[in-house]
């Protein structure tokens, strides 16, 4: 493995390989792995970015009707969810910090807290969507068809964007559960932490998207 083991480390020097002769096992390169994760996060960003572009263009076209739509959304629920997600981001960051200090137990508890937050977020979201559905406000509903075009497009964007975001919350939650198992099994340790860091990065991205979704949908009324 000496050849491709030429992974420059932080200082740019090649790191000797832990498994000489085993070609198919790549050496542990945490910087490379994080770089890969960040590049992946860029694609997620642009994926939501495309929807944000749509939001902005429709806002230009339908302006005040978006405000009408926004007034129907509950600032309290949205705000509560913002706090929940911010807190979950904090606990996830702390979980990693705890791992760096070899405090596995604390880290696991913090990850539990993160998952509780994720579930809490989804429960609030479910109530919110449920409320909209109960009012007959969902795609293809008769009530929706009676609204102005601006409000229709506002709610379409609302369902699609918060829907995609909720999907990411679910994926992120599952990833955290998975990484917690790996911590328990001893596969993620203080010395091989990058898997957990990457899951953490993903979770923070979920938070980032919500930081923009919340004011754009709930606060322009």
């Amino acid at each position: 493995m000496s050849g491709s083991a030429a992974i420059p480390d932080d200082a740019g020097h090649p790191v000797p390989d832990a498994h000489p002769g085993h070609h198919d096992i790549m050496p542990y390169d945490p910087v490379g792995a994080r770089m890969g994760m960040w590049l992946f996060l860029l694609t997620e960003l642009l994926l939501f970015g495309a929807m944000f572009i749509a939001f902005c263009m429709y806002y230009i076209q339908h302006g005040w009707r978006f405000s009408l739509g926004s007034q129907e959304l509950s600032t309290a629920m949205g705000g509560a969810n913002t706090l929940v997600l911010l807190t979950s981001s904090l606990t996830m960051a702390l979980a990693i910090a705890a791992m760096q200090r070899r405090n596995t137990r604390l880290s696991q508890q913090l990850m539990n807290a993160t998952i509780v937050c994720a579930v809490g977020f989804l429960v609030v979201k479910a109530f919110e969507w449920g409320g909209k559905f109960a009012h007959g406000l969902y795609p293809t509903s008769d009530h929706m068809a009676e609204l102005s075009q601006g409000e229709q497009i506002f709610y379409s964007l609302y369902f699609v964007m918060t829907g995609f975001h909720a999907l990411h919350v679910i994926i992120g939650g599952v990833l955290i559960l998975w990484v917690k198992r790996r911590v328990t099994k001893g596969l993620v340790t203080t010395d091989r932490l990058v898997m957990m860091e990457n899951v953490g990065l993903y979770w923070h991205l979920v938070d980032l998207v919500w930081i923009f979704l919340f004011p754009l949908f709930y606060l322009i009324g």
Partner: peptide, 22 residues
């Protein structure tokens, strides 16, 4: 493996810094 380790563990940021950001 020492150098790998050093590649991975950058600054240990104090817990309270995270809380302050929060």
């Amino acid at each position: 493996m020492d150098s790998t380790h050093s590649a991975d563990s950058h600054h240990l940021i104090p817990y309270r810094a995270y809380v302050a950001v929060w």
